[in-house]
Amino acid sequence: MADLNPITWWRHMLSLPNTSPAKTLIVALLVALTCGTAVSVTAIMLRPLQQKHHERERQARMQELLKSLPGMKDLIDDAGEVTLQCVLVELATGAIIEVADPLSFDQRAEAADPRANFDIPASADIAGIGKRSRRAPAYLMRWNGKLKRIILPVRGSGYQSMLYGYLALEGDLVTVAGLTFYAQAETPGLGTRIQEPAWQNLWPGSKIADDQGNLRIEVVRGKGTRPYQVDGISGATRTGTGVTNLLRFWLGDYGFGPFLKQLEIGKIDP
């Protein structure tokens, strides 16, 4: 043990019989260390590239949502009249923040950044997300200069995974124009059906609030009877509840509520 020269030590280790417990432990440790380092180094080095692909996938979904909105196709054919604008919203006040390139804003990065994110009070955190970014992008679609649709990113806990999607509202800010999810990992064949067009097509035309302006949007068990109720998926009750909660959160006071209010009273006209 007195000899601390690593080379002699290494030779000594190699010369041990393969059956010795000491060598077994050392070899296992070295293999684990080498393999672990190789895997982490590749994962970290390639992450920016992979994220770029995911970002492109997200953008493609966004375009898809825009195209799948009813009546949208006619609008797009009428090009030139329609403009799509991305703005960055400060969620707490609902004010629009002027930045050079709102499209490049990374909401997930800000929500994960302890210096920039916002702790949602537990009582208000119905979507089960814990922390959210202080700012969020919103997409405004105008036709002949008039606000036609507004598209908001939403997310929240489903039954067993985080659901990421976009909610599109009509210009009256009450009628849903569409809802789409681009990332989730719910139970295959049950909860995952929230990504299917058959279910997403139930959304256009439903209302987020009743006539008094109370937030009422809800995924119900079975068939919905009111304008603010949407049919649930059999066997995916908790995914449906998750969707209800995430919509109410993001349309509520801690989500885009202040922004929608400002738009409604015409205080801001981005």
């Binding site: 190699l14 393969n18 059956t19 010795s20 060598k23 077994t24 070899v27 296992a28 293999v31 684990a32 393999c35 672990g36 190789a38 895997v39 590749t42 994962a43």
Partner: peptide, 21 residues
């Protein structure tokens, strides 16, 4: 230098790491 007691574990660890990479 592969100890017979953990021969398969070492093989799988190395293959799995290569596959992840």
């Amino acid at each position: 230098h592969i100890p017979p007691a953990i021969r398969l574990i070492i093989q799988i660890t190395i293959v799995a790491s290569l596959v992840i990479v």
